[in-house]
Amino acid sequence: MEEKTNVQNYFYYLATAVVIIAGIKAASEIVIILLLSIFIASILSAFLKILEDKKVPKFIAYVILLFVLTIITFLLSYMVNSSLASFSANLPTYETKIKSSIIKIISYIENYGFAIDKEQILKTLNFSYFFNFTTGLLGNISAVFSKALLVFIGIAFILSESKLLEKKLKVIFKSDHNRLSNFKLFSQNLQKYFIVKTFTSFLTGLFIFIALIFFNIEYPILWAIIGFLFNFIPVIGSIVAAIPAILLSFITGNFEITIWLIIVYMVINITISNVLEPKFMGKELGLSPMVIFFSLIFWGWILGIVGMFLAVPITMTLKIAFESTNNTKWIGVLLSDLNTKRKRH
């Protein structure tokens, strides 16, 4: 009888999860604004505290942060949109050039006696699809910038009530100090993740910009911004961000520069992702690499491109929540990287 009850409970939890996921997907436009507001506010709250520690009045510090954020967003939006418009206008030219480069390579291989069907290869390599995918992806990023006003309002309210939230948590957890300390530790780790990730993403974008200027690749600002943004997507983000600039280098016909550019991208991403980030971030995430990969697919399906950017912090939040109760602790264990935990102890 007890075993039957447990099975019923699992089906109940599964049905509840399906309903919640369907609700989030249906309300994804609102959820995206909410999540972006919360996570950006978590970064800004750290800088707000720094300004307050330096005896800057809270209201002035608050206005300074929102002003700086507004300027940065407008600049990024303007640069992405202007570069994207120029890039889209030149797409037919780029497609012609890249097909010409492919034909040259095939002709070079055929000189060694190999028989290759050029038409079939060009048909298989659907560059129109790739470029449409690229512009669609960049268009989604531009659409995120268009929601900036609503995100700003959300950030403003969250920051203004940050102190009040602390008081509310003390009232909620007044009889459970362990939960309050766990929540504070989680908030600190989440904030640390975003600050470190923003810093390393900025370095990634900066180094990419310098490299592209050095190799004289078109639209260096656009690809640097893409490198900055896509560094927030683990596993595949840095690979996707490198493709457009490498293809542009390839169609110039200078294959030596293309090889060097691939090496530079690899060095930048490996150094920052495998050396700098672990050094500054530590092992607070504790998420399984498999879980990180599938969380990208899952949250990307639910929330689109923004879901991929926020996949890790959302999954980390769920992991902490599951670990906080005995009934769902096993789910938290499944999401965890046990090798990381052993290293800690």
Rank of each mutant, 00 (worst) to 15 (best):
N6P: 02
N6W: 10
N6T: 07
N9L: 03
Y10Q: 05
L14I: 15
L14H: 12
A17V: 11
V18K: 11
V19Y: 06
A26T: 12
A26S: 11
V31S: 06
I33A: 11
S37Q: 03
I38S: 08
L44W: 00
L51W: 04
V56P: 01
A61I: 01
I64V: 15
T70G: 12
T70F: 15
S77V: 00
Y78Q: 07
V80C: 02
N81H: 15
F87R: 06
S88M: 09
S88D: 13
S88L: 09
S88V: 08
N90F: 04
T96N: 14
S100E: 12
I103S: 11
S107Q: 11
Y108E: 03
I116S: 09
D117M: 09
E119F: 12
T124V: 10
S128K: 15
Y129A: 14
F130T: 05
F131D: 02
F133R: 09
F133H: 12
T134F: 04
G136D: 03
K147Q: 15
A148V: 02
I153P: 12
I153F: 15
I153C: 10
I155M: 10
I158Q: 05
S162Y: 02
K163T: 05
E166T: 09
E166M: 07
L169V: 01
K174A: 14
D176G: 08
R179L: 14
L180M: 05
N182L: 13
K184N: 15
K184L: 14
L185Q: 08
L185E: 13
S187C: 07
N189W: 03
Y193I: 01
F199T: 09
F199G: 01
F207A: 04
F207L: 14
F209E: 08
I213V: 04
F215V: 03
L222N: 00
F228N: 06
F228D: 05
I233K: 00
P234C: 11
P234A: 10
V235D: 02
V235L: 05
S238P: 03
I246C: 07
L248M: 09
F250K: 05
F250N: 05
I257T: 08
I259E: 12
L261Y: 10
I263P: 08
V264R: 03
Y265P: 03
K279N: 11
L285N: 00
L285W: 00
G286Y: 10
P289H: 10
L296C: 06
L296Q: 09
F298P: 07
F298G: 07
W301G: 14
G304V: 00
V306C: 02
A311Y: 09
P313V: 02
M316W: 15
L318A: 12
K329H: 13
N339L: 11
R342P: 01
R342Y: 06
K343I: 13
